[in-house]
């Protein structure tokens, strides 16, 4: 069954331009110069029920604009959208019961109050009766491990703790579709991976359709099965995450903290990016070399204190996609 269907969605913003210098100030005072900016240039896609889709792309690509249109916040310039049979900007109130939203930069929680109070207020907003609310909150508390956070004022929480509560907040009315806008922005590595696991597990458990935006490829890999890559308001790639990985992301950044002052990793497909005392950062070309092999080689030379494996930044991935496409 289709959960989301989008066809030829366009959004144009008007942007004011100001000239430089005093004369520029003066002339824009009397006659402002409006310019059209096309944030979305006609995108189309369908999402099936229970699918987890990542919407990725660099800053300003149109990710947030799309998610805002789908969740009923923005009206598009043209195009058609159906979310569980509703047109978001026309049937916002009906839609609201079906969707849950988490905006990484905004909070649905009351800053000075314990999270529990915000949850119960949201239950009231979504007309969830007391018995159902208690049952749900019990289950969510267990699966998100927020037992000791329930009675803590939000202002005293760390960002990671707050984000867990934000996601619980968006699950309270048991939405069928969950929109997550940059859910891991600003979080440290441990908190990021925790949030990713929780979103994944709860979406499987509750059979929730998930659409998340991010400019972190990690979010997409850990949570989603499908990826839509968007740049300059257009869809560049729409397909399974595994395909994107195997075709376009052929690099890993591996950092080692070593006991020895220095180690050398002269292996094919490995480029040293940075060396310092007790530290080395390399880039592994996964087409030519396995990451495990590189780690093994490093372990032969040193007893490692710490290893981290990261993806190349989004901008590089997109660059490599453009490069391969033009070939």
């Amino acid at each position: 069954m289709q959960a989301i269907s989008v066809s030829d969605l366009k959004k144009t913003f008007k942007v004011k331009k100001q000239g430089a210098g005093f004369s520029g100030t003066l002339s824009s005072f009397f006659k402002p110069d409006w310019q059209d900016f096309e944030a979305l240039r006609g995108i189309s896609f369908d999402i099936q029920r229970g699918e987890r889709v990542a919407f990725i792309g660099p800053n300003g690509a149109g990710k947030s604009t799309t998610i805002k249109i789908l969740s009923g916040i923005l009206q598009p310039t043209s195009g058609e959208v159906s979310i569980g049979g509703h047109v978001p900007w026309k049937e916002r109130e009906k839609l609201a019961y079906d969707i849950g939203t988490v905006f990484g930069q905004r909070s649905q929680l009351w800053y000075h109050l314990p999270a529990r109070d915000s949850f119960s207020l949201l239950a009231s907003a979504y007309d969830v009766d007391e018995a159902t609310f208690q049952k749900r909150i019990k289950r969510l508390t267990e699966s998100f491990d927020i037992g000791e956070l329930l009675d803590k004022p939000v202002r005293q929480m760390s960002l990671g703790q707050r984000m867990r509560c934000e996601i619980v907040a968006s699950f309270i009315h048991n939405p069928r579709i969950l929109f997550l806008d940059e859910p891991t922005v600003g979080l440290d590595v441990a908190a990021k991976s925790m949030i990713r696991n929780l979103v994944y597990e709860s979406s499987v458990q509750e059979e929730t359709t998930v659409l998340l935006t991010s400019h972190d490829t990690g979010d997409m890999e850990r949570v989603c099965d499908r990826v839509i890559l968007i740049d300059e308001g257009q869809i560049i790639i729409d397909g399974p995450v595994s395909e994107l990985r195997s075709r376009y992301i052929s690099k890993k950044i591996v950092s080692f903290a070593t006991k020895e002052e220095t180690i050398a990793l002269d292996i094919t497909g490995v480029k040293t990016l940075e060396t310092a005392a007790h530290k080395i950062v390399v880039e592994v070309n996964t087409d030519a070399q396995h990451v495990e092999h590189v780690i093994q080689k490093a372990m032969e030379q040193s007893s490692l204190r710490d290893i981290s494996v990261e993806d190349p930044p989004m901008e590089e991935v997109i660059q490599s996609i453009y490069n391969k496409k033009s070939v």
Binding site: K14, G60, K63, T65
Partner: peptide, 11 residues
């Protein structure tokens, strides 16, 4: 507000 022109482009 819903037209988004209030904010313009925000990614």
């Amino acid at each position: 507000y819903e037209s988004g022109n209030r904010f313009g482009v925000r990614g």
